[in-house]
Design a protein around this nucleic acid. Sequence first.
RNA 1: GCGGGUGUGUUGAAAUUGGUAGACAAGCCAGACUUAGGAUCUGGUGCCUUCGGCGUAUGGGUUCGAGUCCCUUCACCCGCACCA
Length: 921
Amino acid sequence: MDYNFREIEKKWQDKWAAEKTFKAVTDPAKPKYYVLDMFPYPSGAGLHVGHPLGYIASDIVSRYKRLKGFNVLHPMGYDAFGLPAEQYAIQTGQHPEVTTMKNVARYRSQLDRIGFSYDWDREFRTCDPDYYKWTQWAFLKMFGSYYSNSLKSARPIEELIAAFEAHGTEGLDVACGEDLSFTAEQWKAFGEAEKSKVLMNYRIAYQGETSVNWCPALGTVLANDEVKDGLSVRGGHPVEQKKMTQWQLRVSAYAARLLEGLERLDWTDSLKEMQRNWIGRSEGTEMIFKVVTGSEERDVTIFTTRADTIFGVTFMVLAPESDLVPLVTTPEQKAEVEEYLAYVKKKTERERIAQTKTVTGVFTGSYGINPLTGEKVPVWISEYVLSGYGTGAIMAVPAHDSRDYAFAKKFGLPIIPLIEGCDVSEESFDAKEGTMCNSGFLNGMQVKEAVEAAKDYVEAHGLGRRKVNYRLRDAIFSRQRYWGEPFPIYYKDGIPTPLPFDKLPLTLPEVDEFRPTEDGQPPLARAKDWTYEGWPLETSTMPGFAGSSAYYLRYMDPHNDSALVSKEADEYWRNVDLYIGGTEHATGHLIYSRFWNKFLFDLGYVCEDEPFRKLINQGMIQGRSNFVYRVVGTNKFVSLGLRDRYETQEIHVDISLVRNDRLDLEGFKAWRPEFENAEFILENGEYICGWAVEKMSKSMFNVVNPDDICDNYGADTLRLYEMFLGPLEQSKPWDTKGIDGVHRFLRKFWRLFHEGQDFCVSDEKASPAELKVLHKLIAKEEADIAEFSFNTTVSAFMIAVGELSDLNCHKREILEPMVVMLSPFAPHIAEELWALLGHTESVGAASFPEYNEAFTVEDSVTYAVSFNGKTRFTAELPKSMDRAGVEAAVMAMPQTDKYLAGLSVVKVIVVPGKIVNIVVK
RNA sequence: GCGGGUGUGUUGAAAUUGGUAGACAAGCCAGACUUAGGAUCUGGUGCCUUCGGCGUAUGGGUUCGAGUCCCUUCACCCGCACCA
């Protein structure tokens, strides 16, 4: 009986599906293990061979953990709201749901062929109303909450209202947009609209005007992580800055906790570092400068991390968007300032990035007073100061900040050095080292002391206070799009009002077209009767990250109609033990999810405050493209080695026409009409193609489809090969060439159980040599899976199978545990052999074999004998021999004499079990 | 510019964490069986060579011993980027 993978794989996949083999049931008697893949966005292109890499790894861990006695939750679903389906809908008129469901079905059929052990009963799509009901629910909870800084927790907004009624803003320590100040009496006197506006300043989900990334081509705003280099991540369209009123999430309130939480997570350092940078904590000082405009005087607060440099302040700078700008502009400067603001406004984000080196700015006409020296310094406006960070105003110290330096040079402002011996004639001195000078009471101190001394001084004299700033901004939460979750908000007398919980889900209405309305309203404005009790409903929808922020919780209890997740399910499954996915979500999804989870934790809906305990980033699988070289102006194609003799043009060729870099000439001619009459200049009778590693994509003709691999080699081979390709976390090119090696291994494994065509396994007792092979492999697999080093496990299997074939071993005692151990990697062949071995239950119900050191212990060890560190020969010695014995034995060997000829021994170093080093002179 | 990472045969990669570098695979070469082979099996395969020597990007250091630890330089990849 040959290894017929097609028949075997079909048979077992059908059986797993029919019997729901991998159904997870809450079982307090067993320890739980939750393995999650970042669920995919089902794109129209289907899966390529790179996508399942992480899924295969997580499936191996899932199956392994089941063998180790864990109750494993391993679900899968789809991140189904998103731009591509909507763009397609705009172009074709086809409802995004239709496209999405078609793509989901395709994904599902591709996934099913690879033999994953998902519990498909828990599957859902983020666009299912049953699911997005809970996304809307969470939004309403955020709308109904504020963040208490003193309690470090979200609290119901009713508590805040009660506080306002009792004592206004007195003693308030909460996260907010701007610092408001009013008394209880004032609060009570506010009208409904006014109260709503005030509360927006504190809600965790709030509506507010902000500068947003507006993408005209997509007709929507985008979050910071959806924009890269001034272009939209999806589609690559230009993005500009625009002030708009938008729904936002007060993620910034959680900055400190998001940062601290990283300490407790088992994530890679690079990923944690990325999040730290994104959160961007910096310790500094807020200081008040009096600014004099004509006869008026007002306080301007600046933020600095270098309070020690205050004696070097020679000017101040405001962000162009700062509210202070109109207030401090003098009548004489008004025209110039307005011209500058117009210039800044018309720049797109992309231009701004491209021109970071150009220095621009304008003088306001006002002067600030240095609170320490009483000196007057001019107040400027420049785009290098950002309105969104700190206070949008800075004190400029050109001697010790390179940006201030460039500005001072350009506009001829004075530069005062503050560190002894520093040279500021060519560039600023940014390093925090040296002895202070020109700095009043700080003179003579080292910079590090001066930083603290200056902060103390400022606080002691009431000039300002210590302040921790974060770079993390609130998340913009509305999109002017159709294909997303509708906001459960209606406008009663213009006041944003939450829909009652029992009206959820608020389902997406039908519209006749998916593009914005003629007057620029979002597509939902096209819906007939988009109202609640006669009041208009919100017309924007939620962004892509909304649905993916709590999906891992829903898998714990996916059919619950009365809660996102029941208390019992949450307390059993708690959080994700192992999360596998790409790095591209480092600053998006992985921040939002942590925020979302912490919020639900604060309100007591979940019991863990971090969602993902351990996270692995699988590397990307790139494509390996092939090229042919056309001689310019002809239809002749020259082989790689000969192309230097011609002027050639490199052309991508479909990799299906190439094998081992040899071109299939007839296939190439048939590929495209223009190549029909192609002629070839061959080397050694063959056409050798060039190659390069590139992103796997249709346009490069280098896409490898997993279905084709399953057809030709089988899912087990695909799984093994993807793991064999190299370390999981590393990016690597796909190269189908090597796949025969693992396929051959599976056939060899199969043959261990067969004698000719017959299944043949003996009950004979295993020999010590055979047991050693087995137990070496057990130890190796245990260690490798703990470190996610799957490639070496596959190698170890190949070696073990090679050794067992050499030993001609067909014994059940050895082979049965081998099948169990192989089952996480190649489950189909394992199930088949397991059944042939006479078992009626799935191999998944077996236990992972116990490692017994006794079988692998050697009674002798090989010592490497070296002279002055150079290994000359090896010596086989009993393992029990002590150092002195080893030394004596080695010194007595004839080879030693040979290498000692004429030299004297200085000393002998014996490393037990490894090395004997003889130092000679 | 700042931060993180990587560098080993023709290729993907191993190396028990400081102990015989290149396991395992691919490719290539030779042989066997074949009408044939994108099939199967066997052997060889880092470089220079006569002994032997040289080899883990580069130059140095620590050590009896370094791919592994420390410093220098170079190259590449990733992330952030006017964050005061």
